[in-house]
Design a protein around this nucleic acid. Structure first.
Length: 296
DNA sequence: AGTTGTGTTGAAGA
DNA sequence: ATCTTCAACACAAC
């Protein structure tokens, strides 16, 4: 599940490998993932021969800034991830499936759900693997994307230097509801999902269901600090690969060694030994330690 | 073998 | 308006 650290990992890896390459051609077997422009044919026509100027992240969105004022936006949703390498449509073994031409992590099953293939200049391919086909692919005029409603609606970037404690307090004051839900609300703050909201709240010893209104300044400060610390550390480790996420090389991220509560229901809390529990919150799971994170 | 859980987002429902 | 539920989809685990 790519959240901010996973998306950032992909963006950093890609920036090292594909700058100044051009999109030569594109293939897909799920045209409906392209939400903009309205047809794959048009998408293909527009992206051809556009050069990659810069790759950046906004929330969980990956944006390729291209030549001629174009921007390619990819939201990986639950199971999507971009891969770099070389493939060919397999004539044997798995007929009709993309086969990596080198041995290694790209051969892993989780990297084989390839539904987009981009040919880049300089003899390199960019593949998009997305098991559940939830992703969103859009080609924008760069200036229109920056002024789009979906971009303006996104909350601030938690890791930006000018995102101060006072600004965090301000956005929380405007929000309402339970802290876990608010942390995952992209219009409040951009990039945090289920994994990191659970981890941040365990770190701060705050119950995921605690109402925003009932948080005092000290608690908000703790959340602010834990958020910066955990997201930064996760980026350093290349993200979390407990499930489908892989970096562009096909390799796993190593945040797993730091994972304290997410998907650890029934295990012992690393701080106090109490059994970690799971609660349902708006159709998704919240993992927490009932001793360290009392309701209050 | 059928049912449920998985988690992001936007749309539909209340 | 604002909150909750659900659908999109594929697979693992029960």
């Amino acid at each position: 599940m790519p959240e901010l650290p996973e998306v950032e990992t992909i963006v950093r890896d890609l920036n090292k490998k594909v700058l100044n390459r051009a999109f030569i051609d594109v293939w897909t077997d799920v045209k409906k993932l392209i939400k903009k422009p309205s047809s794959f044919e048009e998408f293909k026509k527009q992206i051809r021969n556009k050069k990659i100027k810069k790759i950046w992240r906004r929330g969980k969105n990956i944006i390729f800034d291209l030549s001629d004022n174009y921007s390619l936006l990819i939201h990986q949703k639950l199971t999507g991830h971009l891969l770099l390498g070389k493939w060919q449509i397999g004539p044997t073994g798995y007929p009709g499936k993309w086969q990596p031409l080198s041995r290694g992590p790209l051969e892993e099953p989780v990297n084989r759900y390839i539904h987009f293939m981009f040919w880049l200049s300089g003899d390199l391919m960019l593949a998009f693997s997305d098991l559940r086909k939830f992703a969103k692919v859009e080609l924008w005029r760069s200036d229109e994307l920056k002024n789009s409603e979906e971009f303006k609606g996104l909350g601030p970037e938690p890791l930006e230097k000018n995102f101060t404690f006072n600004k965090f307090k301000e956005v929380l004051r405007r929000a309402q509801g339970k802290i876990k839900q608010v942390l995952m609300d992209q219009t409040v703050i951009a990039g945090i999902g289920n994994i990191y909201s659970d981890e941040i709240l365990w770190e701060t010893k705050i119950h995921p269901f605690k109402e925003i209104k009932r948080l005092n300044d000290e608690e908000i400060k703790k959340i602010y600090q834990a958020m910066k610390k955990i997201l930064t550390k996760a980026i350093k480790l290349g993200g979390e690969s407990i499930s489908d996420f892989r970096r562009p090389s096909g390799e796993k991220g190593y945040f797993d060694s730091e994972r304290k509560v997410y998907r650890r229901e029934g295990e012992k809390c690393g701080r106090c030994g109490t059994i970690i529990k799971r609660l349902k919150l708006g159709g998704r799971s919240a993992h927490y330690c009932p001793n360290c994170q009392p309701i209050r």
